[in-house]
């Protein structure tokens, strides 16, 4: 086989759906919209876990929100039949992520766990990934943010504090995944057990709307949950193959 053929076959294999099933992990999250109450606990839990800066009122007024997970709200109908639906929106860790192709310096890439990783040190701040992301879950550091003392003592030492000019987004709490993997390795296990690792948002969700786990493990909670008949992807038509699966809201009539 010539070099080109080898390259081509590797490329094709890489592009083939299901490629990630060959790996130990393909981290996936399901969000049951029927249980989500929109309370925002996930937002604050994420902010606490991931050193997400406080941007201040002025910046928020300019539209520079900084929450890796946010609650979107959509109204239906008018009073008295108005209904409000919530949907938590976070990085979907797409298997065919538009943001990964556009970054000129490969600061964002797909790792072997099926995570869409962001290398802060490598980011030059073209912000094109945020343009390419149809879910708009990438957030840019317009400034160096400050934590007035002693708020800085709360900063999680396992997570980088990002500097100005760098893009950031949900990592599925990769630091927790790393710790769980280390723990598994110390125990002589090959894989992390189901339920051993949970991102901060899933951990705190009081209505248990979120499930997180490894979809390559057919025994896992998340595998069962994502195979629920109610499962769907948001913006399926963009064909990004997200790793976040939503479960449809149930509408009871009458």
């Amino acid at each position: 086989m010539s070099f080109i053929d080898t390259l081509r076959s590797r490329w094709q294999e890489y592009r083939r759906p299901g490629y990630y099933e060959n790996f130990d992990y393909a981290w996936t999250m399901t969000i049951d919209l029927d249980s989500c109450t929109g309370c925002g606990a996930c937002v604050t839990a994420c902010q606490a876990e991931n050193n997400i800066p406080l941007v201040g009122e002025e910046e928020l007024a300019r539209g520079r929100e900084m929450h890796w997970i946010r609650i979107e709200r959509y109204w239906e109908g008018e009073f008295p039949n108005a209904k409000l639906n919530f949907i938590p929106m976070l990085c979907q860790h797409c298997d065919a992520a538009p943001c990964e192709t556009v970054c000129p310096v490969s600061a964002t890439y797909h790792n072997q766990d099926g995570l869409n990783a962001q290398v802060y040190n490598r980011c030059v701040g073209t912000r094109s990934c945020a343009v390419y992301c149809p879910y708009e879950v990438r957030y840019f550091n317009y400034y160096n943010h400050e934590w007035p003392s002693p708020l800085d003592q709360q900063l999680n030492p396992d997570v980088t504090v990002r500097e100005k000019g760098v893009m950031e987004k949900c990592t599925f709490c990769i630091q927790r995944i790393r710790q769980a993997k280390d723990a598994a390795k110390d125990d002589g296990r090959r894989r992390v057990l189901d339920g051993e690792v949970q991102p901060a948002c899933v951990q705190t969700c009081a209505s248990q709307a979120m499930v997180f786990g490894n979809r390559n493990d057919s025994q896992s909670e998340v595998f069962k949950s994502m195979n629920d008949p109610r499962a769907y992807h948001v913006l399926e038509e963009v064909n990004t193959a997200p790793s976040v699966v939503y479960l449809k809201k149930v509408e009871v009539n009458g």
Partner: peptide, 26 residues
């Protein structure tokens, strides 16, 4: 335009110690 112009040379393919190349798909 870019957030960290002092690293903009990373978008240029040049041999380097880290063996980091730009993203040729971009």
């Amino acid at each position: 335009h870019v957030g960290r112009p002092w690293f903009v040379h990373w978008a240029v393919p040049y041999p380097n110690q880290m063996e980091m190349w730009p993203n040729f798909r971009s």
